[in-house]
Amino acid sequence: MVPERAYGLASWATSLTPLTLELRPVSSSPVTSPAPAQPYGRPPLRTVHVLGGSAGDGGCAHVRSLATGLAARGVRVTVCAPVAAEGEYDFTGAGARFEPDAASALRAACAGADVVHAHGVRAGMRALLALRGRRVPLVVSWHGDGPPAAGALGRLGRLLERQVARAAAVVLGASSDLVDLARLRGARDARLAPVAIPAAPEPDDPGKARAELGVVGRPLLIAVGGLAPHRGYPVLLDAARDWRAMDPLPLLVIAGEGPLRAELSRRIEAEGLPVRLLGHRRDAAQLLAAADLAVLPGRGEPRAPLAQEALRAGVPLVAAAVGGVPELVGEGAALVPYGDAPALSGTVTALLADPDRRASLAAAGRAQAATWPSEDDTVAQVLSVYDELMERPRR
């Protein structure tokens, strides 16, 4: 969703293996420096992280965070991802080696790996193909690949899920419902592993962001994410029709780009909706901090970055109660049924008319965010899984 430059990254403390010093008599022979201590008392662990288009922006931010923490701990990290993802998230700057996601590059990277970690089911299948014939443990993180498709595509998706779940040494589900799904698909070891994303930097003057959008004396609503069908934007525009009668008239801004842009633009113009499509924005975190409400109408990412950022920043959130979102936000957001435009419209209208309720929701959101695992916790959990796999007999 928001690239690394917008989030900012926390500094990671490097784990150091204790050194034992031994005093020796003075000798005329040349003095050589000892070899650098290696983590775990053995050569550096070599990991390959596989990303694809299905991992979502939250998956890319998660891998960037993992790469930073793992590299700081002496782990050698290679990220195989689309070139565009490297441009947005700068995995190389996090201390990882970047390889484009071409099949030949992926096979070469996996050939020298101790652990391959795929992010998303489709990335897991690509990793399986690259690992064919190699006894390298595969870890698959299920971040959510969007809503299930119907018909033949749905059957193919379930087949891929079964193959990946059964082949993975460990499946890490970002929410409890994904852990249950992995077990249903045949995973022999599925665990809950909440995804932590980097905290956003302190925002600039919110008034400046509002002035740049021309929002003076009116409420500002924000949604962030690619313009894709599962994001729920058609439902959001249905709700926005009701807001045209409000005084003052709120402005809804949507930061993101995608295949639905033309369709949404036509609706906004034809129906005179108080909605503006901003396209891809590097300052989405700053815009969020300036908003009166954040809106998450879709599905697909159980630990949606927008939900995490809004609750951390104390921006009241209205979200669809679907997937892992209720588990993530707890009492820290106003939840509405997925796909229910009247419920979404009514909840937003009521919150805009009730500043005390918004303040209460903001406080509850901050409290909920304080219960989430940190980036350091996430890296530690992943490292413990890798260590465990290194101790297992190779199958």
Rank of each mutant, 00 (worst) to 15 (best):
W12A: 07
A13H: 14
S15C: 05
T20M: 03
E22Y: 13
R24H: 11
P36R: 05
P43M: 00
L45F: 01
H49F: 13
G53R: 10
G56I: 08
S65V: 11
L66S: 12
L66K: 09
A67R: 09
A67C: 11
T68P: 04
V77C: 06
V77G: 08
A85F: 11
G87N: 05
E88R: 15
Y89N: 06
E99C: 12
D101V: 08
A102D: 13
L106Y: 08
R107M: 03
R107P: 11
A108K: 09
A109W: 04
H117E: 01
G120A: 15
L128V: 11
V139S: 05
W142Q: 13
W142Y: 12
L156M: 02
E161K: 14
A165P: 14
A167L: 02
A168N: 04
V171A: 12
G173L: 14
D177T: 08
L181A: 10
A182S: 09
G186T: 00
D189C: 10
D189T: 11
R191Q: 14
P194A: 14
P194C: 10
I197N: 01
I197A: 02
P203R: 05
G207K: 15
K208P: 02
R210T: 12
E212V: 02
G217P: 13
H230D: 11
P234S: 00
D242C: 09
M246Q: 12
L249W: 03
E271T: 02
G272Y: 08
R281V: 01
A285I: 03
A290I: 05
A291Y: 07
L296N: 07
R303P: 14
R312H: 11
G314N: 04
G324W: 09
G324C: 10
G324K: 12
V325H: 13
L328Y: 06
L328I: 08
A333K: 10
A333C: 10
A334P: 10
Y338F: 15
Y338N: 06
G339C: 06
R358C: 09
A359N: 14
S360T: 15
L361W: 14
A362W: 06
G365R: 12
G365L: 02
R366D: 08
A370G: 12
A370Q: 15
P373H: 13
E375W: 00
D387E: 09
L389H: 05
R392M: 00
